[in-house]
């Protein structure tokens, strides 16, 4: 018999049941193909020898479970990713929020924080940062600790700087951070307007009303039912005339909230036109 995948579909379901029962983390609405691939990746990375041992460790070792959550969720991100998206925020979205006395932004699935700091830079350049708060949330406490430090590898700055310029940035990108060994430490002025907190889109409720919600490349990991549930959560958390921004390949189309939203021409940004 040739060696097939290290973890079977049935074993994926067993683990989903285990972590729901043991820890209350509900992965039942996650896309199976991606979840299975992440599980196999973790199993291989950690040189697990049998499913039984892998399962035991996940269930009984809470430190390892933390690693489990960190590794099976995808935490790949960058600053000013998709520059044309940030350009649209800069020119078409944020100017419409400028008249509000206070701007609340929710960045759901913020991972290690690169988008949160990008958002803060954008608000600062539009002279809105002083009256803004960015709530950046993630399911995964480990990435939030990194995000709160505001330090990113110096080696990434060249790419981020190019993204920033392409997105319409007007300043010297390096003026926003100071180099410290191999890290770029971002200004505390930006950090002061960021609130990092755990939030599980599957099980946690709305916690405020926002003018702008960004959730990019998170819904792709969910099945349709969970996508609709999370979009409804966003709808309940967004003020009328507020904006919802999704990833390049994500959409509100076919969802229960779609009729209340109007899309900005080219980008994956929708405005809430009706309550």
């Amino acid at each position: 018999m040739p060696t097939l995948s290290a973890i079977t579909d049935e074993q994926v379901e067993i683990l989903i049941g285990d972590v729901l029962e043991q820890y209350g983390y509900d992965f039942t609405g996650y896309s199976r193909a991606s979840l299975k691939r992440r599980l196999i990746r973790l199993y291989t990375l950690d040189k697990q020898v049998s499913f039984a041992e892998f399962r035991y460790k996940i269930c009984k070792d809470s430190v390892y479970f933390r690693r489990f959550v960190e590794q099976i969720t995808v935490n790949v991100t960058e600053m000013f990713r998709d520059p044309s998206f940030y350009k649209a925020l800069r020119h078409k979205v944020l100017p419409n929020l400028a008249t509000y006395p206070f701007i609340r932004v929710w960045l759901a699935g913020c991972s290690t924080g690169e988008e949160a700091y990008s958002m803060a830079i954008l608000l600062k350049e539009l002279n809105l940062l002083h009256k803004s708060l960015i709530y950046a949330t993630d399911i995964n406490p480990t990435v939030l600790e990194k995000a709160a430090q505001g330090m990113f590898p110096l080696g990434h700055m060249k790419q981020y700087s190019e993204n920033y310029i392409e997105s319409g940035g007007t300043q010297e990108f390096s003026s926003y951070y100071s180099a410290s060994y191999s890290l770029a430490k971002f200004d505390s002025e930006l950090k002061a307007k960021l609130i990092f907190s755990t939030h599980n889109l599957v099980s946690d409720h709305s916690f405020n009303e926002f003018q702008l919600i960004l959730c990019r490349n998170v819904l792709i990991y969910f099945d349709r039912d969970l996508q609709f549930k999370v979009l409804t959560l966003f709808d309940n958390s967004l003020e009328k005339l507020g904006y919802l921004a999704l990833g390049t390949k994500e959409t509100t189309d076919f969802s229960p909230i779609s009729k209340r939203y109007k899309r900005l021409e080219t980008e994956k940004i929708w405005r809430k036109i009706n309550e």
Binding site: D9, S31, R32, A33, S34, R37, R38, V74, V76, N217, I220, Y221, G247, T248, K249
Partner: peptide, 17 residues
């Protein structure tokens, strides 16, 4: 800029890992 995965029900999933 996305990986493409196929689900058992013959639908596509995208992945930005």
């Amino acid at each position: 800029d996305y990986h493409l995965l196929i689900e058992n029900d013959h639908t596509f999933s995208l992945d930005y890992s």
